[in-house]
């Protein structure tokens, strides 16, 4: 990307190189994060699987019923697992550049490549985990997703939003450590507002409008429509979601472009 090489640009070749770089980065990320010992790559799924089970089981045992007669375990697990993906993409963003600085010595590798590789891996792993859960619910409880495509779209939208936000945070972290210090607090405090653990129709009417301004709330509504179909009312606005995705990613790319030039390796 930053190669100021005065050769005729061959876009096909450039794309091939980027895909190659991405593939290599994903493989590397897998081996550095999970190694080849004990469970190895299975940890990719094990972590969200264990956390999802724990959260779901906790609510199942404490046994509050949910409005609309939603299955307690399924509701909490399918709320928590996408949230887990969103949070880990965001939380790890501020340290991404520092942790991968040595990669930037290869001019073919951009910060965008590094972040795409990480986040696609995270998204893939969590999607895999969700599939495992949904298959289990289907077989054990006969609760199959009504519109599986919407679950996938909702997850993808959430990942794309998190990726854009992660670019902004990573760019900011090049200027100040403060970002890394406060981000864990922020993701913790804002957890109740993300939409992971409530549905919009539970709220009073005025609050529904407020809640639907939060883009992750709409992603969760989309995922829940996919899971529960029309058994409960759901609201989401696809152009609104897409606008957020484009906005966050454009802002992230612009900020990263500026910050990259300041980066001291």
């Amino acid at each position: 990307m930053s190669d100021a090489v005065a050769r005729p640009v061959d876009w096909g070749r450039a794309l091939r190189v980027q895909l190659r770089v991405l593939g290599a980065l994903i493989l590397r990320e897998m081996s550095t994060r999970f190694g080849r010992e004990n469970l190895g790559y299975l940890w990719l799924f094990a972590e969200p699987l264990m956390l999802g089970t724990a959260i779901g089981a906790l609510h199942h045992v404490t046994g509050h019923g949910l409005p609309g007669g939603l299955h307690v375990l399924m509701f909490w697990v399918t709320g928590y697992v996408p949230f887990y993906m969103f949070r880990s993409v965001i939380n790890r963003a501020p340290t991404t550049v520092v942790a991968n600085q040595s990669l930037l010595y290869h001019r073919r590798i951009t910060i965008l490549d590094i972040m795409l590789a990480r986040n696609l891996l995270e998204g893939g792993a969590v999607m895999g985990t969700l599939v495992i859960f949904l298959a289990a619910f289907g077989m054990a409880l006969d609760l199959w997703p009504k519109e599986p495509a919407l679950v996938v779209f909702g997850m993808a939208a959430m990942l794309a939003m998190a990726h854009g936000a992660a670019l902004i945070l990573a760019a900011g972290a090049i200027y100040t450590d403060l970002i890394d210090r406060v981000i864990h607090l922020v993701t913790y405090v804002t957890m109740p507002f993300t939409g992971a653990f409530f549905m919009v129709f539970w709220l009073p009417t005025e609050m529904q409008h407020q809640a639907l301004r939060i883009p992750t709330v709409q992603c969760f509504e989309m995922i829940r429509r996919g899971l529960f179909g029309t058994a409960v009312p759901t609201t989401f606005d696809v152009p609104y979601i897409i606008t957020w995705i484009i906005g966050l990613n454009l802002a992230g790319l612009l900020m990263m472009n500026v910050a990259r030039r300041k980066l001291v390796v």
Binding site: S2, D3, A4, V5, A6, R7, L104, Y105, R107, R260, R261, K262, L263, V264, V265
Partner: peptide
């Protein structure tokens, strides 16, 4: 090498 950027000026690499 391109790992860092100059504040001013250009580097052309062929």
């Amino acid at each position: 090498s391109g790992v860092e950027f100059p504040e001013a000026g250009h580097i052309r690499r062929e």
